[in-house]
Amino acid sequence: MIDVLIIGGGIAGMEAACTLHDLGFETLILEKEKQLGGHLRNWDTLFPTKRKASEVLEHYVKEIQQRGITVYLNTDVTSVKKQEDGTFELNTGREVQFKTKTVLMTTGYALFNAERKEEYGYKIYDNVITSADLEKILQTAKGELRSPSGNSIQSVAFVHCVGSRDEKSGNHYCSNVCCVTGVKQAIKMRQLLPEAQVFNFYMDLRMYGSGFEEMYREAQEQWHVQFIRGRLSEVAETIDKRLQLKAEDTLSARPLRMHVDLLVLLVGMESNKAAADFAQSCNLACAPSRFVQPKDFHIESNKTNVEGLFTAGTAIAPLSVFDTVNHAKAAALSVSEYLKKNN
């Protein structure tokens, strides 16, 4: 029987797997995609250092390989059943059934589907993209960046809180990382398009992490990004494929209208479908946000209501890479304590 079965081979799963392996436990990773890495594979750079996400990924993949940790790719967990003796049985699309003493759920998040905010016109107007689309574009960008409709870009606007803090989307919570992502991407656009104007439409700028506020200041001071306090109410397309934006400039208390060549929607994080599947198959408790509910938010944030089933990373809430890695490390220790006590 395996000691720890980790579901999800993103950074949280890989970090925890390495630590648990080093603590002497038999560890196995199940990953539903054909590669390790999760969402980070589609990300260009990380805030606040602006280093390449691929560097972090390569580090973890190498660490996993060096330790010879077994990884099952293309393996989607369909159910988790707790046995009478306290162990777990997992079913996947594969023939083999997995038996394990503990489960660590590092299933991550799903990106908010921006099509649901119909008034922003994602996938209706050519030049509306999401922050995730922009990261993919930046990963491979060569030469002059042009808008999806092929126009040169003279102005770009970023919209904060798309699908977050929004009752209409069913998401009351803040996604934590979009604010700083918006600042990071705004700087990037100014670097790539020195002639372009860049605007960020925000409600509150939540620069909560180390180095975030400094980056905000850099965006203002060095890159002249213009921050407008107001939430976009609607987007429409003009005859030349530009986008007409409407918002209130709340600080001057007047409605505002502007036209831009590219609109980037900073999409938030939502609970992964996996959380719902788990909840169904093993009575896992979820918060009203639909993310996994930790047993105790402060003291036992890696435990769940199911004994022996642990969690880490964005399965519990939107988190930065920094917080995810720390939470995963903590999860490894939490699992280790449990295994020592129950062996």
């Binding site: 649901r116 994602y122 996938k123 209706i124 993209i129 574009i137 960046l145 042009r146 999806p148």
Partner: peptide
């Protein structure tokens, strides 16, 4: 940049 496939959300 790649063009987005058109949404059928309204449907």
């Amino acid at each position: 940049m790649q063009k987005q496939p058109k949404s059928t959300q309204w449907s």
